[in-house]
């Protein structure tokens, strides 16, 4: 049983002029189908305007599809009666850290979700404590969010979602506004939650380095899924990725260029360690050939 089923979803933004006449229709998502299994770490890649954020907003019923359907844990997102339950099952972290923190103190913000769900006071405090500890922000519980760095704010946002005990978290470009340190912090927290708590993660991003730990990667372009597969499979298709205006990680690119230059390297090298290993093999082979 999958936790999220996206079935031929199409979404159109309709632009209207002042007299309410339709000026133009932009199809942001165009016939996307995909299914997510519980506990998976999914990454959705795409450059600006590829429809990845629009798709993300379908997953917790902020947007409803123009055509097709989205089913979250057995509930159709068009069903108004299940709205709160869907949003509780599939939590969402947004891009701008400043615009999603509601509380004036860290712990109040984390408590906001449970408060809305009507959780009893004592349990709210337990949930706040455990979720702040899960992202390593417990020492900052009485800080004002304005005093935190971008990466810390995003970790608080993640904790705020965890406090609602979701089965699945959708992260809509959570690192786009952060510095490299903050990006690492956030991704580390996301991976840890996926490993330890087995929360299904759907990470939407345009940073390639962040998707190498994912179980499956989907690349979106012009509202459609252009490529899908494991990170290794995706990154061995360097030239195709370039056509979609996406950069591969530096290490992968280096390996690709070396291969094009004639070195016998395998496809889809993702980390520095893999590359060093592969290069050492090549060297050994050469040494042996020279000895013969």
């Amino acid at each position: 049983m999958g936790i999220i089923h996206i079935n031929k979803v199409k979404y159109e933004y309709i632009r209207r002029d002042e007299e309410n006449n339709v000026e133009g229709i932009t199809t942001a998502v165009d016939g996307v189908s995909l299914a997510v299994e519980p506990g998976e770490f999914i990454a959705i890649l795409g450059h600006n305007g590829s429809g990845k954020s629009t798709l993300a907003k379908h997953l917790n019923a902020i947007l409803c599809p123009s055509e097709g359907s989205v089913v979250v844990d057995g509930m159709d997102t068009q069903d108004e009666d299940h709205l709160l339950q869907i949003r509780q099952t599939a939590g969402m972290v947004f891009q701008n850290p400043d615009n999603q923190i509601i509380g004036q103190i860290v712990e109040e913000d984390v408590g906001f979700g449970p408060e809305n769900m009507g959780v009893p006071t004592k349990e709210i405090w337990e949930r706040v404590e455990e979720s702040l500890k899960a992202v390593g922000m417990y020492e900052y519980r009485s800080y004002s969010p304005n005093k935190l760095s971008g990466g810390q704010k995003q970790r608080v946002s993640i904790a705020s979602v965890i406090a609602m005990h979701p089965k699945c978290i959708i992260l809509d470009e959570p690192t786009a506004m952060l510095d490299p340190m903050g990006r690492k912090e956030v991704i580390r927290a996301v991976r840890a939650l996926n490993d330890v708590e087995k929360i299904t993660m759907i990470l939407i991003t345009h940073y390639m380095e962040e998707v190498i730990y994912a179980d499956r990667v989907f690349v979106m372009d012009k509202g459609k899924v252009a490529m899908s597969g494991t990170p290794k499979e995706i990154f061995s298709r360097v030239s195709e990725l370039r056509d979609l205006r996406l950069d591969v990680p530096q290490v992968t690119e280096l390996a690709y260029e070396l291969k094009c230059a004639g070195l016998p390297l395998p496809d889809g090298i993702l980390t520095r360690e893999e590359l060093t290993e592969a290069l050492q093999k090549v060297r050994k082979m050469r040494d042996r050939r020279e000895q013969e």
Binding site: N60, I62, G91, F112
Partner: peptide, 16 residues
Amino acid sequence: AMEARCYHGGKGRTQM
């Protein structure tokens, strides 16, 4: 962001 975290006015809300 508030909607995504189940905010639906004061009804049925508890306090931290």
